[in-house]
Design a protein around this nucleic acid. Structure first.
Length: 484
RNA sequence: GGCCCAUUCGUCUAACGGUUAGGACGCAGCCCUCUCAAGGCUGUAAUACGGGUUCGAUUCCCGUAUGGGCUACCA
């Protein structure tokens, strides 16, 4: 049935309604992976025929989101708004061949009919009155300037869609209407432009969202009327929010840009999206772009919708952070780091924190801690780690450390443990307050690595500031507290 | 309302007539450990329901239920 030429041509055809939806990104990705796997061509086409809704600047966001994700296209972007001549010529042809006809009802008349049908509990269908108008009369009325739309003559037989994901789907003729190709103001409509473009661009496979499955018989009829081969179809399950409703802005983070802005890596988002609906067939979850391009196949796409789980995305992002070269991570963090620590410190810090950060924002925050002294100390940590005797104990530790010449993890640890032993206390009594004093928080990378990386001067300065802070006892019974 | 699609652990999915229904996220426990992570190990949890077909159904067919899509001079 389909022309499965060895060099498929596929396209992603978003309408420029603002940001790139993750569902759109997944569709684009599947098209791209299929094209790469089959050594075909991936085309980007912007569907901006809706003059009321489309705006120039809105397609820019889609383009930049695709670039960020690495969804590079081989051809395009084509803009439907600049292909009007093509559509005009196609209507003329369909009209001349009798595959389409003019209909002169006004929108108001159609609305009224629709309302009447609704009220009577009947399914509304266009009356088909336009089909009865003789061609020469139709031409005459059109020349006279009478407003009209152009409708496609739908065939009276069942239309079969042989979907690569869903199998054979049949649409009985009574469900199909003679739909409008061109509005009365001359603007060609979506379904029409899609088919004319797919035909003109010699698209061989249409991979798109499930929401278009019910539109497919219209397209099949149009391709037939146009006299062009019918592409193969593969309809992908929708991407849902955690409430199992179609993912939308309402859910938050339905747009690719939003994930970028919270510190998700494009590689991780692509990996995550690839696994929504498709799987390589084994237990692998972390797949490189090369693996996906090598192994992607439509046969392994499942038909059911999938819920977008942010938790798993975060986990996957962490997996990428754990594997990515430090230089690369640093570059990705820079946008969130107004004053980064010195490069060598930052790179070493990344090694300490790569398994502790789930996003580049979290990583950037960790790195910032090496560039600036803590401004405040975690109140819970203060309560838990700072006891009345802590100041004195820490004072002794600072003295010991100040005398230390080899400022590397092992000697530092030895020095601290020796100090604890001298003072007859457990090492923890010094370790935890030290971390708090150095970083402001009670959690983080192994302490002695942090101390070493901070350098002697910075570490001692931070500890002395901390000492000063905890060494100012607030009178027990004054009823006055500066903290907590 | 009509037409169409979907339904395996809470979530992503594997198993294309025969498996103790597998993996991953999450959650819980244990190990590791200066904290927090990461990592390792263990556990938790699923074939929506009812009928068929078959020696045998997660798998094929038909209903039901539930979710979703389409039904525009939107895309």
């Amino acid at each position: 049935m389909h022309d499965s030429s060895p060099r498929p041509r596929v396209r992603f055809a978003p309408s420029p309604t603002g940001s790139l939806h993750v569902g759109g990104a997944r569709t684009a990705l599947n098209n791209l992976l299929f094209a790469r796997r089959e050594k075909g061509t991936f085309i980007l086409r912007i569907e901006d025929t809706d003059v009321e809704r489309s705006r120039e600047e809105l397609s820019g966001q889609i383009l930049s989101a695709m670039k960020w994700l690495g969804l590079d296209y081989d051809e395009g972007p084509y803009y439907q708004s600049s292909r009007m001549e093509l559509y005009r010529a196609a209507v003329e042809r369909l009209l001349a061949q009798g595959h389409a006809y003019r209909a002169f009802e006004t929108a108001d008349e159609l609305d009224a009919e629709r309302k009447k049908a609704d009220a009577a509990g009947r399914a509304y269908r266009y009356s088909g009155a336009g089909r009865a108008i003789a061609p020469d009369e139709s031409d005459r009325r059109a020349r006279a300037g009478e407003r009209h739309v152009v409708r496609l003559k739908m065939p009276a037989e069942t239309i079969v869609v042989d979907d690569m994901v869903r199998g054979r789907v049949e649409f009985p003729p009574e469900a199909l209407d003679d739909f409008v190709l061109v509005r009365s103001d001359g603007h060609p409509l979506y379904h029409f432009c899609v088919c004319v473009d797919d035909a003109e661009m010699r698209i061989t496979h249409v991979l798109r969202g499930d929401d278009h499955l019910a539109n497919t018989p219209k397209h099949v009829a149009l391709f037939a009327a146009l006299g062009v081969p019918i592409p193969a179809f593969a309809h992908l399950g929708m991407i849902l929010g955690t409430d199992r409703k179609k993912l939308s802005k309402r859910h938050g983070a339905a747009a690719v840009e939003e994930w970028r802005d919270v510190g998700i890596l494009p590689e991780a988002l692509v990996n995550f999206l690839a696994l929504l609906g498709w799987s390589p067939g084994d237990d692998r979850e972390i797949l490189s772009r090369e693996e996906m391009e090598r192994e992607f196949s439509i046969e392994r796409i499942g038909p059911s919708p999938s819920v977008f789980d942010p938790e798993k995305l975060l986990w996957m992002n962490a997996q990428y952070l754990a594997r990515m070269p430090a230089e690369e991570i640093l570059a990705r963090c820079l946008p969130w780091l107004p004053s980064p620590p010195p490069r060598d410190v930052a790179l070493a810090a990344i090694e300490l924190h790569r398994t502790r950060a789930r996003t580049t924002i979290e990583m950037a925050r960790a790195l910032a801690g090496y560039a600036a002294d803590p401004l405040e100390y975690d109140p819970d940590g203060m309560k838990k780690q700072v006891k009345p005797e802590t100041a004195a104990q820490m004072g002794k530790l600072v003295e010991t450390l100040a005398a230390l010449s080899d400022w590397t993890p092992l000697p530092l640890e030895a020095a601290l443990r020796a100090s604890a032993e001298d003072q007859g206390i457990s090492a923890g009594k010094l370790i935890h307050p030290t971390r708090l004093g150095l970083t402001g928080v009670t959690v983080g990378a192994p302490l002695f690595d942090v101390v070493a990386l901070l350098g002697k001067e910075t570490a001692l300065r931070r500890l002395r500031n901390f000492l000063e802070r905890i060494d100012r006892p607030v009178p027990e019974d004054s009823g006055f507290r500066t903290e907590n």
